[in-house]
Design a binder for these strands. Structure first.
Lengths: 355, 355
DNA sequence: ACAATGGGTTCGTCTTCAGGT
DNA sequence: CACCTGAAGACGAACCCATTG
């Protein structure tokens, strides 16, 4: 006996109105077609009469039916979910990148699942395993600075798409990021062009390889000019409290006095948040930032234009980077798995009064 | 004939190593138990011998097996996903709230799906329908300011848990938020206590009801002191560019001169970002913020302590608010559907040099 | 009575395939 | 031939039940 337990063996209109979830069955019944045809409607519209199409569409709207994503994912073995793994959401760069990713994902009809690693390799590994079990369509990953999970990542890249955001872990991986070397070199040249002797303050080691690249950009520009580089000594302690990090180390550095003897007149900072800490340290030390010591940042936070003095900085195109990450996933989903997708973005220098 | 198509009628070890996804079947075979027992292991551990438990656990680890979340969601009719719908991610308050939500969700073994409404009712409605189709365990929602979707929300609350974050749309709904009336009253009293006559600058209408509450707090404190309130006239145009909003309107207001005639000596701003714009406007107008005009903000951004002058503000406990949202969902999942879950949080005034 | 078994059914969809009009 | 139907098997796990050691 098959129909003993459930009396819905044949497509029959629901007896109750809006009882339980609506299924393809109900849509088929209302549209007067078979389940198979409705399925076709959602997957391969080719070879369906316009009339049938319209009837199904109408039925869907009437019942406000949407295919159950879990059932689809189960049978397909893939979901329409992209996983995003970031060190931390509340850092402005990542928040904005996530925003752009989410917007683009929606346009592609995908959902976004987010996890934070807090720069902890174990948390990163756990997040990756979760994404795998969810059979995500792809993963956008900002790898932890230590790159401890290289082996795991190499293995996972075999079975799912991974795009690295503002990071990479090996040759041949997909990544999207700002051209940090170029942008920091540009800022440094700008300072040099205005007759300054710039020192450099790098970010704490919570990211990779952006800080190294920015530092390299500074070095490159200094070498070009035939000048010796100067660095603000900074601890190797990971921290996301960039302002405090900048404040503390710049204050110590100013107090040390070596900068004065070396004729340093400007300070290039790895990020705006560091620059804000640095400006505060200047004042504490009795110097007027932008006058006694020129300062530049990197990233152009929304507030940077309203600081005192307004901060000269570099605007990277975060939204474009986020969108590109999604485009990478999409591209590699439908087709080409061949060449790795890599994109370097440039932004523009934003001159303001701090330098 | 049943076993014609597939030869795995009886639990038999996988022939190939690591071919296709691992299923409960494989775990059962390796552990030498039946499928039903493995299922019990994941759901109702009661009545399983310690020995069996250990064998299954070992098998899971060996195969690194995790139950397919889609299959589970399908059969259960519920997923372990919570949906988060925010006006925008990149606003620091929301970014931090999302971070806290994600952290707490992970601790509860749930995933977080994010969508932005950009304060658009249609986008909010679409996001809600998506969450419904995903059969989420619950939704954390910051409702759009216009509250256009009230009917939809009332309907959806019947079939799924919704907690409102920093917003609410009707009596009896669950919500978690800062006590904005109290916090702004506290800031205003602080200014009054120092002999100031404070005016007020509210945020653009992109949120509800926090701005109204803060305004009410200002009014309350002024009334208490028997003083007439003063407002910076501000447009009703929605915008997330708070600094620009604050800058523009404060500059116009200062230029108007009415503040001077009214003896205003301080400005309370609805958020730190507004205060930053306001400080910039002061300088443009030739006033020294913190000296010629006292300024306070609200929210205590990471940078606020490093501004010039450091900004007096109010720190709301964003992380606690996010965590509470998740606790609400959890509480209502296992049990009580009775009383609405509402929580008001308080933070603390952070006195600094700007006032 | 306790632990575990194995079989069957269900969730909602995709997919295929042999027909039917 | 072009379009559609009907039936049936997967997908992976949960839940139920009647048995068995």
């Amino acid at each position: 006996m098959k129909t003993v337990k459930k009396a819905s063996a044949a497509p029959a209109p629901r007896s109750q109105e809006s009882r339980g979830p609506v299924t393809m069955h109900d849509v088929a019944a209302l549209a007067g077609v078979s389940r198979a045809t409705v399925s076709k409607y959602f997957n391969d519209r080719e070879g369906l009469k316009a009339d049938t199409l319209a009837r199904i569409e109408r039925a869907c709207r009437e019942l406000d039916y949407v295919p159950d994503p879990h059932a689809v994912s189960l049978v397909r073995g893939r979901s329409r979910i992209v996983g995003v793994i970031l060190p931390v959401i509340s850092e402005p760069f990542f928040a904005e990148a996530l925003r752009a990713i989410e917007e683009k994902a929606r346009a592609l009809g995908m959902e976004v699942i987010i996890q934070c690693s807090y720069n902890d390799p174990a948390a990163e590994a756990a997040a990756l395993m979760t994404m795998r079990s969810m059979k995500v369509a792809g993963v956008v990953l900002t790898a932890v600075a230590s790159r401890n999970n290289l082996d795991l990542l190499l293995r996972l890249e075999q079975e799912m798409r991974i795009v690295y955001l503002d990071s990479y872990v090996h040759e041949d991986c997909n990544y999207v990021m700002n051209d940090n070397r170029q942008s920091m070199a540009m800022l440094t040249r700008y300072l040099l062009g205005r007759g300054h002797t710039p020192a450099y303050l790098g970010a704490p080691p919570v990211a990779h390889p952006s800080p190294e690249e920015r530092r390299a950009g500074y070095l490159e520009a200094m070498a070009e000019a035939g000048m010796a580089p100067h660095f603000v000594p900074a601890g190797a302690q990971p921290s996301w409290d960039f302002e405090a990090f900048g404040f503390r180390h710049v204050l110590d550095w100013l107090a040390g006095g070596a900068w004065k003897r070396a004729g340093v007149t400007a300070l290039a900072c790895g990020t705006d948040r560091l620059a804000i800490g640095a400006m505060s340290a200047c004042r504490r030390f009795g110097l007027e930032p932008g006058k006694d010591l020129a300062i530049v940042g990197h990233d152009d936070l929304p507030i940077s234009a309203y600081l005192h003095p307004p901060l000269t900085t570099f605007r990277q195109d975060v939204a474009a980077i986020g969108v590109a990450a999604m485009e990478c996933l999409q591209a590699q989903l439908d087709g080409a798995g061949a060449a790795p997708y890599r994109k370097r973005f440039t932004g523009g220098l934003v001159p303001r009064d701090s330098a």
